[in-house]
Design a protein around this nucleic acid. Structure first.
Lengths: 201, 201
DNA sequence: GAAGAATAGGAACCATGGTTCCGTTTGTCA
DNA sequence: TGACAAACGGAACCATGGTTCCTATTCTTC
């Protein structure tokens, strides 16, 4: 079975194909564990390959990381669409954020992608936008069901999730838990029957 | 007027004292603008001084940054004590977080200090603990007044504020506003008369 | 199974940025 | 005002880590 896509990429030599795969796997592990400042040499070593080989397959570090993060964002978009299938919009929303948090907490590079501006993550922008489209539907639906505060916008979700990342592996001792953070956020997002508290600004 | 403290530090030569002050000012500006990875050469240049001079006054970058961040934390602690003087504990609490946010949003190094684990910021730990002591009182009081959710702990505040920092200068377009983020957090922290929403975990 | 192109490997290269060193300058004190 | 310690300046040093380059090794094809 050979799709057009595969042939379009020009048939790689058998060893090259194998190595490319290994590199991708190794990179996912290494960047996942160490975040954006993991080293290319580490990736190469973990893949059992020379650095030169890594660079033969990916022009530079940014592209390699971008590739990985894009993959992640794409899968999040998929998750969002799944959540859309649930009956209770609010439950779907909460469940998605939790699930996403779970993934992020296991992937340092992803956390970096959500907190930092960096050339590396611009490659992932299209995927991010794709993800946002699915999220938007989810949000709208939860708002129609009267569960999510009306003034909440998709763009703000990125911001909140970025903040959530900060509580994973941050400088906080005592096993701080991002789940707790998420819990508070969700309580803040829930549509309130009562008037909201005054704000000094 | 010569305090014991000044003499304890051993009388510096006039030019040295002047330079030390300049360096501190320059460093506050440079690190405030560019965060933890501003360069020592920049600090020196801004202070109108050679790098060597910077190093004569501060053994290394980490200590210099630590000094600055410590100063900030100390002033935050002071603010917290001021908030304690207000009648309405909740208003005091909100006001403090807002005020703190305002400061953080103008100081990139401070943001870094709240999100990253780094030798540089360990120097600021004592000051941080001092700050936490004041915050604890503020929190307890707001809880007694029934305004703040009962299950909230001081340690969690650091986490949340760290998250808030992530929405300042993050990778989010469209002028995302940390004030909005804070608003949502505060709504999540407000004591709820109604039962909290179910959580999928 | 030999030739040639594709691929691998990893030492060497280079830019960046913190830190050190030492010859020069300056403040202080008698 | 002269002497000397203290302080200055900034070129040079060094470690780190991304990227390149060139030789050696494999596939693949005939």
């Amino acid at each position: 079975m050979r799709t057009t896509e595969e042939t379009a990429v020009r048939q790689l030599r058998a060893d090259a194909r194998r190595n490319r795969e290994r590199i991708l796997t190794a990179a996912a592990e290494v960047f996942g564990e160490q975040g954006a400042d993991a080293q290319m040499d580490d990736v190469a070593r973990r893949a059992g390959v020379g650095v030169g080989t890594v660079y033969r397959h990916f022009p530079n570090k940014d592209v390699l990381m971008g590739e990985l993060v894009t993959e992640k964002f794409t899968s999040f978009a998929e998750h969002a669409r799944e959540a859309l299938a649930e009956d209770d919009a609010w439950e779907g929303f909460c469940g998605l954020l939790y699930r996403t948090g779970e993934h992020m907490s296991e992937n340092a590079a992803l956390q970096d992608a959500l907190r930092t501006t960096s050339a590396a993550f611009e490659y992932a922008e299209p995927a991010r936008r794709e993800m946002d489209k699915a999220l938007e539907q989810l949000i709208k639906r939860a708002q129609r069901q009267g569960a999510l505060r009306k003034d909440f916008k998709v763009e703000e979700l990125g911001m909140l999730m970025g903040g959530l990342c900060a509580s994973m592996n941050g400088p906080f001792p005592d096993q701080q838990d991002w789940r707790r953070h998420l819990q508070i956020l969700l309580d803040g997002l829930r549509a309130q029957p009562t008037a909201r508290s005054k704000r000094p600004f």
